[in-house]
Amino acid sequence: MSDQVGTPDAADGLTEESLAEGDAVSEGAMSERALPDSELVAQLVSSFEGITYDIRSYASSDATYTMLYVPVADWVAFATMARDIGFDTFIDLAAVDHFRDAPRFEVALNLLSMDTNERIVASTRVPYDHPVVPTLTGVFAGANFYEREAYDLIGIEFPGHPDLTRILLPDDWEGHPLRKDFAVGAIPVEFKAGSSDL
């Protein structure tokens, strides 16, 4: 009841600078630990500096997946390596607006290895004043539409993308509706009486 999500007022007077004192990375659950059991994930974690990981399990299932945090500088190199060592199925790319946390935007990449039945969800964070993540279209063809969706709805730029245009909304749309400072856009519905001149 207390959150003001979607109301235009929530964003008023709040600049990114005033919010910058928040936690550097909100994923407190992720922590640096010994290398995981999975060989593939261990290979990834040991190859890049600054990667943190966390193993989760599905609800009502024995299946697990690994959540990773990757610095944005290593984003493409990480995805390329992940693809080459076996995470060769592109599943998903999601963008999140962590409105009150300092690196405001998150991009989460979901990759799957069908051979070893392992899954990783790797995310990176970029700040509000520079929402730029290098494109993965050179690594996975499937990143094309997903990055366009992230650009359209959250407003993250993917330099190097071959066709970075709006995908879901009309071309002349202004703003990025899934940002938290974009109002839901609910309007009071007028229920009209049936007109009598038909």
């Binding site: 959150d3 599943i91 999601a94 963008a95 999140v96 607006d97 989460a108 979901n110 969800v121 539409f145």
Partner: peptide, 22 residues
Amino acid sequence: GCYLVSKGGARPWRMHWRAPSF
């Protein structure tokens, strides 16, 4: 698939859908 971000509270912070048709 569903990628759900919660910041506590009774509403999702962000709900992204991994849609197979997409």
